[in-house]
Design a protein around this nucleic acid. Sequence first.
DNA 1: ACAAAAAAGATGTACGTACAAGTTGATATA
DNA 2: TATATCAACTTGTACGTACATCTTTTTTGT
Lengths: 363, 363
Amino acid sequence: MINNELSKHAVLSQWIKENIENNTFKIGEKIPSENELASRFMFSRQTVRQAIGTLVAEGILVREHGRGTYVSLPGKKASAEKAMRIGVITTYLDDYVFPSIIHGIEEILTDNGYTLSLGITHNRPSDEENCLIQIMQSGVDGLIVEGTKSALPNPNGRLYEQIKEKHLPIVFINGYYRGYNDSYIILDDVKAGEMLTDILIDNGHSLIGGIFKSDDLQGIGRYEGLLKSIKKNNLTVNDSSIIWYTTEDFSYFFEGRMDKIILDRLNGVTGVVCYNDLVAAALVRLLKRNGKSVPEDLSIVSVDNSFLAKHMVCNLTSIVYPGKKIGKKAAQLLLQHINHSQKPEHVILEPYVKIRDSVKKLP
Amino acid sequence: MINNELSKHAVLSQWIKENIENNTFKIGEKIPSENELASRFMFSRQTVRQAIGTLVAEGILVREHGRGTYVSLPGKKASAEKAMRIGVITTYLDDYVFPSIIHGIEEILTDNGYTLSLGITHNRPSDEENCLIQIMQSGVDGLIVEGTKSALPNPNGRLYEQIKEKHLPIVFINGYYRGYNDSYIILDDVKAGEMLTDILIDNGHSLIGGIFKSDDLQGIGRYEGLLKSIKKNNLTVNDSSIIWYTTEDFSYFFEGRMDKIILDRLNGVTGVVCYNDLVAAALVRLLKRNGKSVPEDLSIVSVDNSFLAKHMVCNLTSIVYPGKKIGKKAAQLLLQHINHSQKPEHVILEPYVKIRDSVKKLP
DNA sequence: ACAAAAAAGATGTACGTACAAGTTGATATA
DNA sequence: TATATCAACTTGTACGTACATCTTTTTTGT
């Protein structure tokens, strides 16, 4: 080569690439034959073969003896190669419910020869962005995602659209972004909130408070359930008895400095619906610090039925959070999407409650 | 081709492959030049180029213009390509300590642009085998492994040797297989057992029992520490007061059917060193079922300082298990191995104990 | 109308030539 | 001695030819 320009085969392979991206050569369809390209570009057939050869090596084209050269399907290459992998992105891991979800996912995946890549977002959209980019770059066949801050508008919308463009199957758990018609698996949080509130009311409570997380759909849903139950039973709710917190201020809220404010806001209330066992445990400790006990001074109900619910000073009445079931279901659904690419499916699991002794029966 | 034999270029590329596997062509070194191979095999240079070309596409060889063709280094290809990944294999996940380990690992890895592939063995060697095969096939740059049944001879030794042959860095956590000089990070379990026993003895206890897991090194180590403390304080231990269990029979042991036997074996004992908080919690429930309480009737010390230790009916005195620290350290060590391939390092973390109120002071 | 055979057209293998371009070490020169 | 040059060897590009092999379409024979 006398000049600094690209070699002929490089020019040709780039030209083919561009035509694929322009959708001139559509995926799965045949590109012009070697001889035609040779005569069209006035290159020798060997040079054309070299150009096509590099694209075949990259997995962009597929040669079929006697038939022609075709634009390869995006998923085809990975599945034809070796071990398949799917990405799992959760908000936390060292909280109590997540391991069971991952465990459920892992069980299904290994049974089907898949490996699991894990990312943790700490419920921060910026971390979610990093996780998505990293995991996608490393090449996965599908994603199971617990979205960050699912109650707020999706901050990584652009990324999720890119995923869709790549035809990468995705299943959301514990929440979903409104407006995207993706598969998701959630617990019926409204029902859960309603069931818990019903229990308090059935035990004679009429002034009911709540502590909820405001930045994910689960918190909103459980609060909605509380309202539903209150309305159904012709009671009213005092807005100041509903305490909202976000991911960022949880530890700040319950570490002692806010004790007075919280107790004041729950003043008069006899039963509290807690977002989850972690909140319930924090509330129990808060009450203990201030000389009060559960259920004598305050009844508490909660969601998750975790370690905490079983082993705390006062055993919590708690909605069973079927983490493993959700994980398994999510993995099964994703594998269906990968293998048969069917319509999005929305699974809403019915909650059921484990009654313990954190609710006092009022006369 | 008139016959059913392999094509010439296929013969040649296979021949080169075999020579690499035979170590005739050593990694990083030059293979014979195209012209030499052509004349040696009586093939044309184009045919030789085709043979080499396929191996280059597979990442086995690297061509360098003007210099020659070299056998590529195994790690080179992956790192030159795209996202890097390391495999993490743990025994469990839905137990309480593992999420913190994973969390620590994940933190370091994402900071360095790595992704994490997860496998769970349930402490079963057969599952470990599957995990290792799957994760290795999917291509990782290194492994962090919590070996199954580390107290027993390594059942997947052949696999671990294969890993070594591939020069794949590996770091063990919570245990290691004797005889393999690999990097590992463990808590000083002997010291942990000794410290716990010391606490009981310092509080006036002289008849001390223990419940330990027999199939991993941690159990053995903690028992060894107990013996050390007993000996140091000129006491003796009654062998029947030391209860051993294995992974498989944990639930069977503590579900109720064995209550009498266990209580009988702990008869006379005033303090018990438990393998971990899970065992301690099970023991507390067992005692409660049988009308006894902690620490009034029996003092208990344990390892992990988990959720359970903090929230149980009786707050446990427990050795702090620094899961996140172990995870972070393991990831850092592995990255060092990947980038600078240095000697194996053995990190033994000093335990420290969180005193709570599960030990009664005897006169 | 159907089936077998032939033709046409695609990729696969294999050899050949020629020259370009990068790398290395030996040689000649200052 | 240091430096520049050159020769030898390496891989890279490009064209050419010939035939094999597989697939699809067309033709032909019944």
